[in-house]
Design a protein around this nucleic acid. Structure first.
Lengths: 209, 209
DNA sequence: GTCTATATAGGGATAGAC
DNA sequence: GTCTATCCCTATATAGAC
């Protein structure tokens, strides 16, 4: 594996584990047993590493958010779909942990992140619209607007919230984080579903949680 | 006004405006036209300033979250109540902007912040319970658990979300931030309310938003 | 491509005079 | 209480040898 790729890989791991602000270029080099000078041969600065990692994340999110399917999604689809989103967030969670600090340093990242957020919301809105037309969901257009915003907020900040709120109990495993996030987002959708879909959702929750 | 208090006041303003990580003790001293040495006469270090500001915030939140009233709150009560919470968050928004970074540096703050979060949720749960008993709200105990978590997430991270999402449009005024946050939280509660309460909520929203 | 050595800059913090 | 001067440390980044 090329040094350049190893730098990206190692940076991602350390950023996720320790938080981006606490990891310096020296830390990354030391962890890889290369010299700081070598790292700077491959990247001009730390921001360039972050920008590259963000690009990877963005590409991944874009493919997830495409939703090429024609048919109306059922509850199980939604669960799995949300799971993919949370999985991607989890693998690049350092971005979310210090979101403001990272986005403030780089205007381009801010714009791109906002686009991802907008895409998340429009995808969610489209799914809801489909469910309404299939009479699975009962919601006005205003309801859907507010709902998609809430979905975006909870999906974006769930890991942060968990990190504060659950720090009392035993540190949860990766799959716990993901499943609880998916569940929490679906509780937002739940009150708008018809009885049958609500029942279905309860069963799926019991199965996965 | 004593220098010590002016330091706190100036720090709070600069932290809120520029973000806590970007404001150094030298910045604070320069802004006040005092020497860095003088600042260190009054505070041992930057963390001590932050801890004091946090204490102010915590006291304020505690008094808001007391809810000494006996009677069942109506929709207007809830609006005003949430408004107080968002107002307090707004005035100490630097804490929320770099929450992870600040809480990671100081374990004590983390514990106290978690307590505030828990208190927020138990207060919200108590209010919901009251509404259910008054037949204004229709929700199971599981519904309320999930709902209060969602309320906590949205209330905690609304400003951050707004900062990313709305950065395209004109920078909103303070009152816009608050009102939109209150509205957004109430959209979480709305689907559980009976028709009459939902109607009431729509009217209040139109009035304040 | 990789290393060693080093320059630079900035923030945190202290000492001692006034 | 306040100032000036200064020290220490750490992080970023570069230069030049190999």
């Amino acid at each position: 594996m090329k040094t350049r790729d190893r730098i990206l890989q190692t940076s991602l791991r350390l950023f996720n584990e320790e938080g981006e602000p606490r990891i310096t270029t020296n830390h990354i080099a030391a962890e890889m047993d290369i010299s700081p000078g070598n790292l700077y041969y491959h990247f001009h600065n730390k921001d360039e590493i972050i920008a590259l990692l963000f690009q990877q994340f963005e590409r991944r999110m874009k493919t997830i958010l495409q939703v090429p399917e024609r048919r109306i999604p059922n509850m199980e689809d939604m669960w799995l779909y949300l799971h993919l989103v949370f999985e991607a967030i989890w693998e690049y969670r350092f971005l979310y942990r210090d979101l403001d600090s990272i986005l403030n340093r780089n205007k381009k990242l801010r714009t791109h992140f906002r686009r991802i957020l907008e895409r998340k919301m429009s995808t969610a809105a489209a799914i809801c619209q489909g469910l309404v037309e299939a009479r699975i969901m009962n919601a006005t257009s205003d309801d859907i607007t507010a709902l998609t915003r809430n979905i975006a907020v909870v999906a974006t900040y769930w890991l942060n919230f968990q990190g504060i709120h659950a720090s009392t109990t035993t540190p949860a495993s990766e799959s716990d984080h993901l499943a609880s996030g998916v569940y929490q987002v679906l509780t937002l959708v739940n009150p708008f579903l018809n009885d049958e879909a609500q029942q279905l959702l309860r069963e799926i929750s019991r199965e996965y949680l």
